[in-house]
Structure formats: structure tokens, C-alpha cells
Design a protein around this nucleic acid. Structure first.
Lengths: 311, 311
DNA sequence: TTTTTTAATTGCTTTTGTCAAACAGATTTC
DNA sequence: GAAATCTGTTTGACAAAAGCAATTAAAAAA
């Protein structure tokens, strides 16, 4: 993968900036006679919970063995950690935080939170959210394990100003990128949104949005087109958030909403390209009720219709 | 301003994460026998260019005076900086990087860039851009002086999939927040975008987008509705980017495009609420050609029409 | 069994950073 | 205008943080 020089420059400047900021944020450590390395060890120990050895810490934290040994020794003499001899290897010890250790860590984080609170105090609420989002993005992009978990995702059912546009944006850009659709597809999406917004009626229509912070990252809708049938539309999960059950959750919500509104059937139109989505539809009881080859969105596609009976 | 606990938690985790990363990014410093503090001093000296004193460095970098004195002494003996006695105050010295000092700094940054390059190497290009954007956002929110400058903004004239949706999103959410418009406004915007996308023709229509990284932060369009007149639409600059001339640049581009396409007149419709925009219109030669009080977007508004003759 | 490797520790050293005192020029006070 | 105070910088003494190399003891390989 090639590296963008502008990006390198920004990372460099950011690093430079953050070096100053870190000094401020980590100042409270001195009050507790801990070095930054010692704190990192404590945090890592909490993360690993059990079966953490010195070697693991050295590998993970990039810390010198001798130095670490002394840090651990002082932790032990302060009863912050407990050592347990491995019976697989007589040289290694399993390290574990004691209750006292956990408590100290909490106190430290309390102190850190106070520092951060002071830093954030003059920042408007909305910018605070944007900050958290940006930091999460940085971590998410740079680290393998800062995976987003289902608990980070919230859901909402109301459509607020800006939502429709953002959904259209997601559809337009993602389908262009992932399926190669052209602008015509966004035009079509725009039309469907216009028709929806014009005739929106909460007794027959229902939108669900999956949110990460204040960002929409997934969507689905059921639109009552007749007294008996409702159309499912705009089923999409942002690629960064796939594979953690958001799609299934949205689908379940949509089916339940259609049932609550007493529709007898849900139908939807998709293409044969949408393999992941169609397999999810089938798993949830939908069956294919039609297909049609046709030129669409600049490609030659197979349009598929799926249906499910709700009674 | 109240502080969001979730945000504090994310900042804390980010800090924790970045402490590990910083260790990696700053590793190359050791090769040049420099401490992080020493590097920060060098960078600050370059920034300040002239008339930088030890006191200024102490205040800006939060570094101990004694320690700094030694750092500077070593810099001087290595001919990285030159000292010049102040004639206003016999105690102070003006510090300045020598050519050798600047060169060292460049070498260091080269090393840093290599580290960063390695870090970014496995990251897809698009994510790299998102990373830079997120880092810029963090700096921008937390520091007063990381202001966005006009040079950071790029412009493009082509409409890519996802753009229309994002513009609709910006209009819907910003007008809701800043002017109190309801969903009807987004419905209307949706309609205008649908009409535009349906009939898009580059010989008469032109969109301009102001970009920060890969994010749209401003827009304008001229839409040829007849052979003689073109309508200006979607003039908007994201609030975080106002006041640095983006609006004027967009307006100029739009007027020029209308002239190039040989339209005789531009008209636009806005409301009396849009004080900043209308004053910009007037400054650029537009005159008010009509107004109408009416209920709109959930409010009682005064719709205004502006025109400019291009011939 | 011997050799080699590996996990952890210990001794020694350098680097980094802090604190308090000293110093010298500037400013204020009487 | 001399004494006292304050300010910007330096120096000395010291402590904490971190790195390096040698050592130990257990495990794995030869």
C-alpha cells in the first residue's frame, strides 16, 4: 500500500502536538510515584487478567526486561500484584493485579479523568463528541484490536433532519465503491428518499438507524406501500461495522415493526451482487419471488425480489 | 461547559493507546542522542524563528529551567543553536537555530517520517486520509492555534456518488441546528437534488465543492434553468470552516462558471435569516429583487430573491 | 549428558529530569 | 541613589527512569 505524504506530515505534526499534550495528561502520575512505563504495565496487567508473564509484558510494551523486573518487584513489595509460579515452566511467574492494585489503577484513572475534564471543560458539547469520535477513528484505523463491539452501537427510530441525506450519502458512496454503481444509483436513491419524505407516516413507515456516537453507521426501513404489504428499503451497514451482528439486529427490528403494524407481507428488491445481505434475508425466512436481468446503474445486473409472509 | 463522561473515557483510552504508539514513533530519537524534550525545544526554536528566549521555551514547553539550560548548553556546544545577547535585558539571550540545527531537525523528521511510513504502510489509502482528518480534528478541537487555513482546503468540480447525499445531509442538519428548520426543509432539499440529478448536464450545470481531506465542507452550484438565467443553489460552508474566505471563493467560482457558460443572469432564493450569506451576495453585486413572507420549514420566514446581471 | 536457548534477575551505567541555591541584571521601594 | 526585591538564567546536588551486559536457573535441543 502506498503512503500519502500529506498524511505522513499530519501524523508527524499530530505526534508533535500530542507529545506536548501527553506531558499535561500524564502529570498526575508523579503524584503517585509511578512512571509512565509502570502505569502501562498496570494497565496491561488488568487487560490480560490472568496468565500474564513478564515476557508477555516485554513483548507487548516494548520495555526493557531489567527495568520491568524492577517495576514488578516494587509492585510486589507494595502488594499491587501477586506472583504465581507456573507449573508448566519453572522460570516464569503468572502476574496478576491484587485488589489493591486494581484500586490504585482506578484512583489513577480518576486523576487522569480530572485532568481530561479540565482540558475538555472549555470545549462545546458537540465538539467533545466529535473529539471522541475522531480519537476512536484514530485508534480504530491504527490498531488491530480496537474493534468496535456491539455495545458501542446504539439504535434510534426517529428520523432527524440530516439523516435522510446521510443515508443517501452512505448508499451512493458505498455502492459506488463496493459494487461499482454510478451516479444514476444515487439519483434513484434520492428519488426513493423524496417519495418517502413526502409521504412519511409513522403509522405505516418505520426507519431504524444504527449509530456509533452521533454517526449513522447502519440503516433499514419498512415502508407501507399498501394495506397488506410493506417494502423493506435502505438496508445497509457501513463496512467498518460489519460482522458484529448489526445487520441481523436491524433486520429483526424491521420484521418486528412490520408485524406490529399488522402488515401481512414484507417484500424487498435487491441485486444478486448482495450476497451477504441475501443470505441474511434467507436465514430470516425470506424467499426469492422473482428476478430480472437488466442494465442498471451503469452495469448489467440481476435484480432480485424477496418476500416473507408475516401471518 | 459540562463534560461528557463517555468522552472522558474515550480520551483516557486514547491517551493510553497513544502512549504506546508514541514510544514507537519517537524511538528514532535515541539514534540521534536526543531526548523528547530536546526535540520539542528544537521544534519550538524553529517555529519561533527569532527572538526566542529560554524563558519563552520554559513557559511554552513546561520544561524545567535548569534542565533546559543544560539542553541549550549542549545544543550550543554542538553548534545547533546560536546565542545573541539582548540589548534590552542583559540577562536574556536570543536563541536561534543554526543551519546545522535546522538540518538536524530535518534529518530527525525524515527518520520520524520513515517510522510513520512503516506504520501507515498496511493501511488502505482511504483510511489513511480518514486518519489524517481525524488527527487534524483532534488538534483542531483541543488547540487554539491549529486553525484551519485556506491552504488546507481543496476544491473540486465533479460530482461523485455520495456527494449529493452528503450535501443534503449538511443542509438538513445545519439548517435544523442553526435556523431551526424542520424535516420539511430536508424534504425540499431532497426534491431539488432529485430534480438536479435527473436533469444534470455539465454544459449548463456546475457544482463546486470545498473539501478538507476527503470531507465536503462547503458547496455551491449554478443550475441552468433557462437559456438566459441560472439559479444559484446549495451555498453553504460548514460552521467549523467559516470566516477564512471559503464562501467568497465558492461564490466567485460560481459567478465565473455562470459567465463562462454565457448566462446573462444569476438568481437565487434565500431567507432574511441568512445574514452572512446575503451580505456576501450584495458585496458581489447581487441585488434583492423580491421578498415574500410565508410559513416555511415550520417557521414564519421571509423568502428573498437576489439577482445579478452578468452582461 | 552436554550444549544451547530462554525467562527472569541483578549490577552497573547513562540519561533524563527535579529542586534548591546562586548569580547577575532589572525593577521597585524608600 | 542605595537597598531590597524581582526576574531570567545558570549551577550543583540529587533522584528517578531507562538501558546494557552479565548472571542465574529452568527448559529445550543436540
Amino acid at each position: 500500500m502506498s503512503v500519502n505524504l500529506e498524511v505522513v506530515r499530519e501524523v508527524s505534526e499530530f505526534n508533535n502536538y500530542y507529545n506536548s499534550l501527553a506531558e499535561l495528561l500524564n502529570r498526575h502520575l508523579a503524584d503517585n510515584n509511578l512512571s509512565l512505563s509502570a502505569l502501562r504495565v498496570l494497565i496491561k496487567l488488568r487487560e490480560e487478567e490472568e496468565q500474564c508473564t513478564a515476557g508477555k509484558l516485554i513483548a507487548n510494551l516494548g520495555i526493557d526486561g531489567g527495568y520491568l523486573s524492577r517495576i514488578l518487584k516494587s509492585f510486589e513489595s507494595n502488594q499491587l500484584i501477586a506472583k504465581r509460579k507456573s507449573n508448566l515452566d519453572g522460570r516464569t511467574w503468572y502476574l496478576q493485579l491484587t485488589a489493591k492494585g486494581s484500586k490504585l489503577l482506578e484512583t489513577l484513572e480518576q486523576g487522569s479523568a480530572e485532568q481530561i475534564g479540565k482540558l475538555l471543560e472549555p470545549v462545546p458539547a458537540e465538539q467533545q463528541l466529535a473529539l471522541a469520535g475522531a480519537m476512536k477513528t484514530v485508534r480504530h484505523i491504527l490498531s488491530d484490536d480496537a474493534k468496535i463491539s456491539p455495545e458501542d452501537i446504539t439504535y434510534r427510530r426517529d428520523l432527524q433532519p440530516g439523516d435522510a441525506g446521510f443515508l443517501m450519502h452512505m448508499h451512493g458512496s458505498l455502492y459506488a465503491k463496493e459494487a461499482g454503481y454510478n451516479l444514476e444509483f444515487e439519483t434513484h436513491t434520492c428519488k426513493t428518499f423524496y417519495e418517502f419524505l413526502e409521504a412519511y407516516n409513522s403509522s405505516k413507515d418505520q426507519v431504524f438507524l444504527a449509530m456509533h456516537g452521533n454517526q449513522i453507521i447502519g440503516s433499514i426501513a419498512v415502508l407501507g406501500h399498501s394495506r397488506y404489504a410493506t417494502q423493506m428499503r435502505w438496508f445497509l451497514v457501513h463496512p467498518d461495522y460489519r460482522g458484529i451482528g448489526i445487520g441481523q439486529r436491524l433486520l429483526t427490528e424491521a420484521i418486528n415493526a412490520a408485524k406490529e403494524k399488522l402488515f401481512q407481507k414484507i417484500y424487498l428488491i435487491t441485486t444478486s451482487q448482495q450476497v451477504a445481505a441475501t443470505s441474511l434475508f434467507k436465514k430470516n425466512g425470506f424467499r426469492k419471488s422473482g428476478e430480472k436481468h437488466m442494465p442498471m446503474w451503469g452495469l448489467q445486473l440481476t435484480e432480485e425480489r424477496y418476500e416473507i409472509d408475516l401471518i
